[in-house]
Design a protein around this nucleic acid. Sequence first.
DNA 1: GTCTATAACCGGATAGAC
DNA 2: GTCTATCCGGTTATAGAC
Lengths: 190, 190
Amino acid sequence: MSTRDDLVEATAELLRERGYSATSPARILERAGAGQGSMYHHFHGKADLARAAMEHVAAVMTEAVESEDDPSLPALDRIRAFLAREWDPLLGCRIGRLVQDAEVVGDDDLRGIADRYFTHLEDWIADVLEVGRAAGELRGDADTRAAAAMVVAVVQGGFVLARAHQDVATQQAAIRGASLALGALRAREH
Amino acid sequence: MSTRDDLVEATAELLRERGYSATSPARILERAGAGQGSMYHHFHGKADLARAAMEHVAAVMTEAVESEDDPSLPALDRIRAFLAREWDPLLGCRIGRLVQDAEVVGDDDLRGIADRYFTHLEDWIADVLEVGRAAGELRGDADTRAAAAMVVAVVQGGFVLARAHQDVATQQAAIRGASLALGALRAREH
DNA sequence: GTCTATAACCGGATAGAC
DNA sequence: GTCTATCCGGTTATAGAC
């Protein structure tokens, strides 16, 4: 693996463990086993390196969600499988966490990565639900965009609660609550 | 108002605007119109001042939620009124935001304030739903703890999405989705 | 109780050798 | 392409005068 890749990898790890502001170039270099010259040769600076790392992480996470999906299942089962994924709540979402950092939100390049990541996820869920509606599985008047936003928000909020409590149980409870509540979208049985 | 109160007030504002790590004592002093000596006279340091500010904010927010509640309404209406409160999503939750900061989570005094704040909120919502179940409004098998965790998580996750998108609409959609989905808890009509 | 001066340290970035 | 030495600015904390 190239020094450049080592730097991106080390940055991604530290972003996950400590967030953006609290991650210093010095620590990145230490973990990557590289000198300062390498970093400033391959990247313009800390923000540029973080941008590369965030883009890598967002691509990996998006790919993971879609590769685990089984489109032959009923829509609600697909969404419930998404909710039931293995999250790592104590570390927080690798993307969502960063967006609470003023430096990240103040940099349109960095925030844009999170923006597009969540937009893609919300669209994907809404599309799955639309398929379910077209198949008659869901109510004709189901608000699929609202439901998709709710699903993504429950996972993200679960991370917040897990970190506050230092305990994974509350995120699991929130996800269970959302899974159960999604039953409200189901078309009435005849 | 005393210098001490000015310091707590200025800290609470900056915590909201910039988070914990990015808030320096120098900025607090500038905003409070005080010198460094005052701060170190009244508090042990930055963490101690933040603790006072977070405790103040958590108390104010808890009080606001409970004072806006109308216990004579049906349970689902009370929870939906909570969800429909005026949030300020672009700034993030004054408590939940801080918990993504490694320095806050690493300090049990600071994290403990967030921990207790959310525990209290989850308990309050679960209690309201229990009242609704006892009154026959909700299904007998409703998982009130899961539903309470979901409600708090949707609000917190909505803050995350609002910041990522720099747009309040997604939080509103998530809240609408949760409000609608809570209908799954309602007892069947006979 | 409040002030200013200063210490000791760490952040991000640059310079220039190899 | 990678290294080390160095700069400048900002951070938290302390000292000691008023």
